[in-house]
Simulated scan of single mutants.
Amino acid sequence: MKIRFKSIGFNNGELKKCFDKGMRTSLLLENKHSNLNVGTGELKEIHLNQAFVLHQNYNNVNLENHSLQIKQSQSVFLLQFVMEGNKTISINDIEYHLTRNTYNLFYIPSLSYTHNYFQTKKNILNIYFKESFLKDKMGKSFINNSKQYLEAKKENQFYSFFEKGLVVNKQLRNIINEFLTCSFEGVTKKSYLEAKLTELVLMALASNYSATKTYNLREADKENLIRIENYMRANLKEDLSIEKLSALAGFNTSKFKNDFKEVFKMPVFKYLTSLRIEKAIELILKHDYTISQASYEVGYKNPQHFTVAFKKKLGYLPSELLT
Score class of each variant (00 low, 15 high):
136 D>P: 01
206 A>K: 11
174 N>I: 09
164 K>A: 13
12 N>L: 07
139 G>H: 03
132 S>R: 11
115 H>I: 13
320 E>Y: 12
134 L>V: 05
46 I>H: 02
180 L>M: 10
309 A>M: 11
184 F>M: 14
48 L>E: 07
147 K>E: 11
291 I>R: 02
215 Y>I: 13
85 G>E: 05
259 D>G: 00
194 E>L: 12
301 K>A: 09
142 F>K: 03
51 A>G: 04
307 T>V: 10
175 I>M: 12
184 F>D: 15
6 K>P: 07
149 Y>I: 04
109 P>Q: 02
104 N>M: 03
222 K>L: 11
317 L>A: 03
177 N>F: 04
59 N>G: 11
203 M>H: 07
209 Y>C: 08
87 K>A: 08
137 K>E: 07
229 E>F: 13
268 V>F: 06
191 S>N: 10
45 E>N: 09
179 F>S: 01
306 F>N: 08
61 V>D: 08
35 N>E: 14
70 I>A: 11
132 S>Q: 13
245 L>C: 03
128 Y>F: 15
176 I>N: 05
49 N>F: 02
230 N>D: 12
96 Y>L: 03
190 K>L: 06
86 N>I: 05
178 E>Y: 04
229 E>T: 14
64 E>P: 01
187 V>P: 08
100 R>E: 08
268 V>P: 01
132 S>G: 05
34 S>L: 01
314 L>N: 12
108 I>T: 06
15 L>E: 01
156 N>E: 12
216 N>R: 14
274 S>V: 06
90 S>K: 14
189 K>C: 03
77 F>S: 07
133 F>D: 04
117 Y>D: 11
218 R>N: 14
22 G>W: 01
33 H>C: 00
258 N>T: 11
318 P>N: 02
171 Q>M: 10
209 Y>A: 12
30 E>M: 15
270 K>Y: 11
251 F>E: 09
43 L>N: 03
167 V>D: 10
287 H>S: 09
105 L>C: 01
305 H>A: 12
129 F>W: 00
136 D>Q: 14
293 Q>E: 09
73 S>L: 09
44 K>L: 11
126 N>I: 02
52 F>K: 06
